[in-house]
């Protein structure tokens, strides 16, 4: 990391430097890009492997040394995934759950986070500690009591069970609290003097100022729900309700696993995630820093 930082610092100072330093600046700039590209290659490896595996016959997927470009690409794998299992149904179910849960999570978390970050009230620290503490308990330990609860509410094998379990998370509250807390109090006080209620401040000031944070939570939450396997595994068993991650598992059978089809289906299932990430990217460059508001 140190080298990365020095390199960027160098390249920054180089732009201001005299002509003698110019060549050194170009070199560090080149080095920076080489580093960035090398890192990107390392990050992309699993996807390249997935793409290559998805075009192979199952018997060749784990053959070593790896054949990165399949000699005889099996394009029909991409057709098979839609016909062998009701993949479209699973995509729709995952979409439905992801949209509903993410919306509820961002809405309720940001609401609660505002109170934790900017309002003084009785029991705040204790409550916040309870939120934090809950993150520290592994989910595997309390999935049985949760299941008992859901069965009593007659929600097993219904989407509602997952929505209720995942929409109200401590993680979202904590994440947004940390962002909200760094919004200068002066802005809020000024708004209070202007007669805005706390609700008004939340909607008109906090939310617009926190787009990067809200975008972050949206991405994290959507990725979590989209990729969640254990939740749907325990709660959903009707084919018409299952999600993508359960669908992928249908290619893993008791005595054989069709990795080529799994990888094809996984890649297809990643498309929405990548689209979402790209769509929300622009919010990372649209924060307080660039909108010109200062404390």
């Amino acid at each position: 990391m140190d080298t990365q930082l020095t390199q960027t610092s160098l390249s920054k100072s180089a732009t201001r430097a005299a002509s003698s330093g110019f060549r050194r600046g170009t070199i560090t700039k080149v080095l920076t890009y080489v580093l960035l590209i090398a890192l990107a290659a390392l990050m992309l490896l699993p996807f390249i492997w997935m793409a290559s595996a998805s075009l192979k016959l199952d018997k060749d997927v784990f053959r070593f040394p790896i054949e990165w470009i399949p000699q005889d690409p099996q394009w029909e794998n991409y057709r098979t995934i839609w016909t062998r299992i009701p993949f479209m149904t699973f995509v729709m179910n995952s979409l439905k759950l992801t949209v509903i849960i993410t919306f509820l999570q961002v809405a309720t978390s940001s609401f609660a986070a505002y109170a934790f970050a900017k309002l003084d009230f009785r029991g705040r620290d204790l409550l916040f500690l309870a939120y934090l503490g809950s993150i520290a308990i592994p989910w595997q330990v309390y999935m049985i009591p949760q299941f008992i609860l859901m069965r009593e509410l007659d929600l097993v094998d219904k989407h509602m069970s997952l929505i209720l379990l995942q929409a109200f998370t401590a993680f979202g509250v904590f994440l947004l609290r940390q962002f909200f807390i760094s919004v200068p109090n002066e802005i809020l006080d000024a708004a209070r003097i202007d007669g805005l209620s706390e609700y008004g401040i939340y909607f008109r000031i906090m939310l617009p100022l926190s787009k990067p944070a809200l975008a972050t939570l949206t991405i994290f939450s959507a990725v979590f729900v989209w990729n969640d396997f254990m939740g749907p595994l325990i709660y959903l068993h009707s084919e018409s309700l299952k999600t993508i991650q359960l669908g992928l598992r249908m290619f893993i059978q008791q005595y054989s696993t069709d990795y080529a089809l799994i990888m094809a289906a996984s890649l297809v299932s990643l498309v929405p995630v990548v689209v979402l990430f790209l769509a929300f990217q622009r919010f990372f460059v649209e924060g307080i820093g660039t909108t010109g508001i200062k404390g």
Binding site: F111, Y131, Y142, L149, L164
Partner: peptide
């Protein structure tokens, strides 16, 4: 809104 769901289900 958050606390209600969080308390019951977590």
């Amino acid at each position: 809104p958050n606390l209600l769901g969080f308390a019951i289900f977590t």
